[in-house]
Amino acid sequence: MTQPALLRVENLRLAYRTGRGVVRAVDGVDFDLRRGEALVLLGESGCGKSSLAKALLRLLPRNVQAHEGRVWLDDTDILALPEERFRRDVQWLRISMVMQAAMNALNPVVRVGEQVAEPLMVHRGWSRAKAMERAAEVFALVGVSTDFLGRYPFELSGGMRQRVVLAMSLVTEPDLVILDEPTSALDVLTQAGIMNVLKRIKRELNTSFILITHDVSTSSEIADRVALMYAGQIVELADARHFFTEPAHPYSQMLMASVPRLHQPDPPQHIPGQPPDLLDPPAGCRYAPRCPKRFGRCDEMPDSITVGERHHVRCWLHGAGP
């Protein structure tokens, strides 16, 4: 249990300049991830979860106002690396990412097998034949028949394309794969098929995953750890077992109650109110305006409070008195 972390994120911040002001999309995020672990970044749209992934991979738009903090991958701070070394040594080889809707961003005029083999040729300098051989292996891994290596993207169904994209991210055997909403555009059965593939890969390859989703049910499919984000911050970070059975933050509790369940007689509850404007977030706890349990202290920004082993909550309800 004292295994060292593969990835350790410390006080990560990312802010954008916009016409109306500065948006603090990621505002002081800390978490760590062990080898072979799957972390789910859960949150509503606009909570900063995709920005967080981009901040990790240094895929930044031009209007960045601030990008600071530390991201330790083993013993290297990958934010401090020179851009070129980061692209050469870390991207693809150590960390790869499947973007949201990546399955619709495949190059339409290149055979999918070649698209999967390409990172190997570019980043590892492999020969074409060797890379194609490896691509065939990865196809088998994600459950796509190797007959499909020579097909074009438009000849594949959505589920198959998503598997191809997944194969692309796995082909270089990275330590960490970041998946941004990998199944949200897919049908229930296809979604279940992809989740099966992810579970198998995680089991067999000991790869770490960061899965970004807004769907609580999907997140429970693979999560070892759950980080619930709200307005640019992680409000609860816990083992999946704790998070799904006894969530500690009021937002986590309400979110869990809002999930429609197939086998539950009680109707789901909705969360009143709206997430804050990231241009001008509340000074204290960001969830306080919607929180039924708020009290005087919520006017102050809560610290990340440790409530159990690897379980942190940003809520004064769990804090020692002032």
Binding site: V188, L189, I222, T245
Partner: peptide, 26 residues
């Protein structure tokens, strides 16, 4: 039946089991 089996309720035990998904495409 397959459709219902593929829908997860949020449950930490999900991570340990695979769904029975019918092969093929619609």
């Amino acid at each position: 039946q397959a459709l219902l089996a593929a829908i997860p309720d949020p449950d930490p035990d999900n991570a340990d089991r695979e769904h029975a998904v019918p092969g093929g495409e619609p």
